[in-house]
Design a protein around this nucleic acid. Structure first.
Lengths: 243, 243
DNA sequence: CGATTGCTTGAGGGCTTTCAAGACGTGTGG
DNA sequence: CCACACGTCTTGAAAGCCCTCAAGCAATCG
């Protein structure tokens, strides 16, 4: 029986290699787990299906399991005491979520599209005898997430709305692309989620997009499909070239 | 020969356990490596001494080694194309630095006090046979750093200067404390470094501290030794209680 | 003790936030 | 298939906050 690579067959972890230069594509993420590892993990995993808007877990809940996304997109967020929502990351297929702090989830997580995911209980994972190779892959994935978090911090440190938005679009493009620049970027999240990720008001996000369009930097055929028109100005805004 | 615990004897890794509830002190970091592990790593490590202001490594350099701080404080930062400096983190004793991306350092690092550190070449680490236990400790440490990076992101997402500063002080207090609240927080970095960490202008940091003092929230006997006077208002600013 | 670096304080301007109302789109029920 | 209703998004106007520029003041180092 032939299984479509990546469709079924067990969990997958996607990351940029921390140690080796990227050949042939620098900065390109690749799948880490071997077929044997995926098969072994699959025997411990169950599959969950979530509707759009459904919660995966809540911050503070006892962390019983980690999840590995097969399809769909999840947002990891934290509710602030003053009611503000802080979105820490958007998670795509082959990402890992559910990392805990002292046995409890550090974030809440919610499906923003229909989602299917592997669910791996910690109990089951502990039964997996300690496997240095597998743990090495997890280390690689964590290094990747750490860099993503730092990129998010760089985005948040920007003072101008247009820079934040350009960096946000660039991050989404980078996550979705497998071999270079995309002709069109798909935004699975709504404007409100974007606002909570880049830490701007909803109104400012809306105005920002409009300004980028009116300056001929981007365009969109519908609110969730953006095309970059002027790559030079775009990169300048996203702080990829000199002042 | 008796060696002072923690003074010499090999690398140390400090982290909050992701898996187990913190007893007796929730949220308190502890040292992970066993004496055997530390001794084994020590045979591969050299010790480096850095003067205040000296660079540990530069972003983009080939990542030949990782460092484990014994004493002193290091800042990890990234120079933006427009000249702005973004400080990603301040690293204390028992922290790990030098994580790479595709074989090159992702950040630059500079000693902000005199520093001694273990230097572990990747070459040497590869000779260490894969050890599941040791790799598990590294995973724990990376989870810890990931949460720190997300806390930094939450700080950067704040819109008011006083909230950013209160959260910054709270982070420093948390890092330095081993058993609860401190009577006095020591700030090894200068105002400029703080500004680049919280993403505010130097002037705004200065004004912010002054405002906190004039409102009776904090006090300081010198620029590097801060005391929290009104914990209630402080926590409210740092978003630890309701609006 | 002088020089350099680090820090504080002032005034003006720009950008984002807030508050609010209206347009758009989508899904549901008739 | 249409109408309505709700959530999502856009747009407007006023206010607030921080940034920039700039000068003066402390503190540190040789």
């Amino acid at each position: 029986m032939i299984s479509e690579p990546g469709q079924i067959g067990g969990p997958r972890l996607r990351a940029v290699d921390p140690w080796l230069p990227g050949r042939p594509w620098p900065g390109r993420a690749k799948q880490l787990l071997s077929d044997e590892e995926r098969a072994r993990l699959a025997t411990f995993a169950s599959i969950v299906r979530l509707k759009k808007g459904e919660q995966v877990y809540a911050a503070g809940d006892p962390a019983k399991a980690v999840f590995n996304i097969i399809s769909g997109v999840v947002k990891a967020y934290k509710q602030m005491p003053d009611g503000a929502l802080h979105v820490a990351s958007f998670l795509y297929p082959e990402d890992l979520l559910g990392l805990s702090e002292e046995g409890r989830y550090a974030n809440s997580a919610e499906a923003i599209t229909p989602v299917t995911a592997y669910r791996l209980t910690l109990e089951a994972l502990q039964r997996l005898s300690k496997d240095a190779e597998l743990e090495f892959h997890v280390i690689t994935k964590l290094c990747h997430e750490l860099r993503e978090a730092q990129r998010h911090a760089v985005l948040l440190a920007q003072k101008h709305a247009l820079s934040k938005l350009a960096m946000f679009l660039q991050l989404q493009e980078h996550i979705q692309s497998t071999n270079g620049a995309l002709s069109e970027i798909y935004l699975p999240m709504n404007r409100s989620d974007i606002a909570d990720y880049v830490s701007m008001s909803l109104a400012a996000v809306s105005r920002g997009f409009r300004t980028l369009v009116s300056r001929g930097v981007i365009n969109y055929r519908d609110r969730r499909h953006v095309t970059i028109i002027d790559r030079e100005v775009f990169d300048k805004l996203a702080k990829n070239s000199g002042p």
